[in-house]
Write a protein that binds this DNA or RNA. Structure first.
Lengths: 96, 96
DNA sequence: ATCTCTGCCGATATATAGATCGGGTAGAAA
DNA sequence: TTTCTACCCGATCTATATATCGGCAGAGAT
């Protein structure tokens, strides 16, 4: 849990949107071939309107900050919020 | 439902094994990343000991005879028994 | 004005399951 | 013996989601 890296990751509206959408996947994403319990497929986030390569970069930023977990299944990568890191980050914020 | 094509398809022990295994997938296949309800992933049938290309050909034979259904999900193809065709074939056998 | 940082994009690279191809072999039929 | 068929295999091709690359643009800082 690196607070600085997390803050950088949160310093972009698209990445904050991604985290928000992941709170209630069924509300924000269209049906995918895989059950939502596997996570949300990376391509779903292209709903933000950015190109695939840009979305991929944002997701990588979130993942390397530990804010989301990833699970690769074949050609897909499924994303979930990482509530543990998020909680730890919130706790660390109290040192501000 | 083409009886002749079905008979040809059944004229090989590996293909009959495949149909038998599909009766009880959970008994004959190792865990796969996808739920069994999606069907059994093609590569699972390599347990018969044949090369991937040979297995692929056998599965294609079964599929084109209508004995199994296929569902492609990304890079995978999932197989299930096609009980409808099998029942129709059994019925047609009474004309022998 | 220039430097740096961040983000954007299109293009290309990567990885992988399955399909197809080319060639070889064994058995049955002629 | 020759021919035909079904089968086998390794090698190559295809398709597709995601990752990475190279270049460009705007915002701040100096």
């Amino acid at each position: 849990m690196d607070r600085d890296i997390i803050l950088k990751a949160l310093a972009h509206p698209v990445r904050r949107d991604v985290l928000a959408w992941l709170k209630e996947p069924e509300k924000h994403f269209t049906a995918q071939e895989h059950p939502l319990e596997m996570g949300v497929c990376a391509s779903q986030f292209e709903r933000c309107g950015l190109a695939q390569s840009s979305v991929s970069a944002h997701l990588a930023t979130l993942a390397s900050a530990g804010l989301v977990t990833t699970r690769r299944v074949g050609q897909w990568v499924f994303y979930k919020r990482n509530e543990d890191t998020i909680a730890a980050f919130r706790a660390a914020l109290s040192d501000l």
